[in-house]
Design a binder for these strands. Structure first.
Lengths: 337, 337
DNA sequence: CCCCAGGTTGGGAACGTTCCCACATCGATC
DNA sequence: GATCGATGTGGGAACGTTCCCAACCTGGGG
């Protein structure tokens, strides 16, 4: 029978023949303790197999050493799994460095999103990482008001006040279009992301910018909206082909939409890249597996997650400043362009 | 200035003109409280915007309402993202029903795996969900010993004592092979998963079983080991083709390995399915996107996660019994067979 | 008119830590 | 030899809950 309760700091103190405080000091690495006492405490800890109770500790320190990562399920279900997987890897890696736990919150619907506010208010986490925020999203504001440190992946708009980490969406998109122009394409359509998100708007802006910079006039009819999903990519491609049968390239604001576009092009017997060049955005695993392999703008998703986590721990642990960081993207040329 | 501290149960009690206990009772839904008092407390709670401090609660109840989901990073990096994404969705959904938080732990290496034991010992979680356990894995035993409720995804071996949820790996594999035999294939190779995992062994066993059942003798040279990764699938396929040039089908123990095998077959100019039929296992998103689309054994991953979470909460909340559940699989026939 | 059961109520103690402060010890300084 | 700062040390209080138990009502029954 190991029926005896798990040891507390008192048990250890008694065993080592010291006071509670001394044990606490040893555990927390204070150096205001004699070598002798420290040795005895350490021995007692080992003997008793003592592990401090982090809940009790949290009660007095008012810290939990955990942060929440909030992911809207609706988007993750769209199949952007590779994005979230990479993001989580990055976040988790950086958090491990500082001994912080990761609380994952998949939010299914608005109701759950509201409920989340309350859950977060119960002081279970020291900070929040927010992914895929829409322009009119109220959650960041609420968290801000509650005084809970928050870091966004992406921003709500160009004037974002909160900390965020972003990919260079406009720059990456412009580079993609520049590449297409360079290859002699002149009728470059684009399938955009949601226009109520900065990501979506910025990538469209990049498309515009590259044209302007090259002095190539744009036709608004070359723009069709998608929502980052594969289906929306296919649908947009169909509409574009109907409207603009002579287009010779497509820049899709996500790999997934590019995949949808590729399928639609195949269905309509357009050859890629001969008839129509296709470029995506993200460089997820998908991109290497399409037929033909997809030219795309790589965004450093894992790095993005890491950076977010580092900023957040810097804020919660060291009371660090807000930061707004943009990570560079890189064009990866494969066979679809 | 919202400089005033957040309200505690005492603040609420004072405001409502009742004692701490009454507030606690209202918050916890006890019915030993008069309608009048309840109304006053509820009003005070709303006015003050009171949210109970779950850390303080946890200290006395000795519960955290959180469970850990442990995922070995090495495997998730292999690109089995769809699997983990779906699993997480299932787990998260079921946990939300019971108001339990999900602590995600990606474990990079053995060092972190050991560290995890300690982390878990600090009483931060009420239970643990363990994914992808190897036969000789010590972690489940340690958790067991610590008295922490544990549910495995898959089992260590056929004699597993802990709670687990499993797919019908042997059955699914057998069905796949039966299907190939039915289509007239007679030289059916298999690319196995790791043989130190029950999943790997069971799927191989299914391959054997279907042959035996049909009275078709098997040649051991038709078996080549993989590790579930795409690369290993390609490598295994190459070895198999060298050794058994006349094979007419391959059953890969994962979609990812099937993808690798498809690529190798294409490289060697073998037509799929005309020359060689290919069947995978899992039915991840990948399977719909291969060329040709992949016939595969669907395992209900999200359901698996949901079931794991439900079993665990039943144990932690209601002191429910251990459970060992096997979920059915289903053959999805596409164009690769 | 007293007693008792049943329904309400609230204060004390406990959960396991950390932090504040007071105290003890001990050379070194005056 | 008293005083002092530096260095260790430990007990009390506090963190915000829940749970136990005692006390308080209110009627109804005897």
């Amino acid at each position: 029978m190991t029926g005896n309760r798990r040891p507390t700091i008192k048990t250890v103190a008694a065993r080592a023949g010291v006071g509670r405080t001394t044990v606490s000091r040893v555990v927390n690495g204070s150096d205001l303790v004699s070598a002798d006492a420290r040795a005895r405490v350490l021995a007692a800890i080992k003997e008793l197999n003592y592990v401090p109770n982090s809940v009790a500790r949290g009660l007095v320190t008012n810290r939990t050493n955990a942060v929440a990562l909030v992911i809207p399920e609706s988007e993750s279900r769209l199949g952007s799994e590779p994005f979230f997987a990479a993001l989580i890897r990055g976040v988790s890696g950086a958090l491990a460095e500082s001994g912080t736990q990761l609380q994952l919150m998949l939010v299914r619907d608005q109701a759950e999103r509201d409920q989340l506010t309350e859950s977060v208010a119960t002081r279970r986490v020291d900070g929040v990482l927010l992914v895929s925020v829409h322009a009119e999203d109220r959650l960041p504001g609420i968290l801000e008001e509650m005084g809970l440190p928050t870091v966004l992946a992406g921003r709500r708009d160009a004037g974002e006040q909160l900390s965020y980490v972003n990919s260079d969406n406009a720059g990456g998109a412009a580079e993609a279009v520049r590449h297409l122009l360079h290859r002699g394409r002149r009728r470059i359509a684009t399938i955009t992301g949601p226009q109520d998100m900065d990501v979506g708007r910025a990538r469209l802006a990049g498309w515009h910018a590259a044209h302007k910079e090259a002095g190539v006039p744009v036709d608004e009819a070359l723009i069709e909206a998608g929502d980052f999903s594969e289906d929306s990519g296919g649908r947009a491609m169909r509409l574009l082909l109907e409207r603009m049968p002579d287009l010779d390239a497509v820049f899709a604001a996500s790999d997934l939409m590019a995949v949808g576009a590729l399928a639609e092009l195949r269905r309509q017997k357009r050859r890629v890249p001969d008839d129509v060049a296709v470029v995506g955005f993200e460089d997820s695993v998908l991109a290497r597996h399409t037929n033909p392999p997809l030219t795309t703008v790589r965004q450093p998703v894992e790095e993005l997650g890491r950076t977010m986590a580092r900023i957040l721990t810097d804020i919660t642990l060291n009371d660090g400043p807000r930061r707004q960081i943009t990570l560079p993207t890189e064009l990866v040329v494969r066979e679809s362009s």
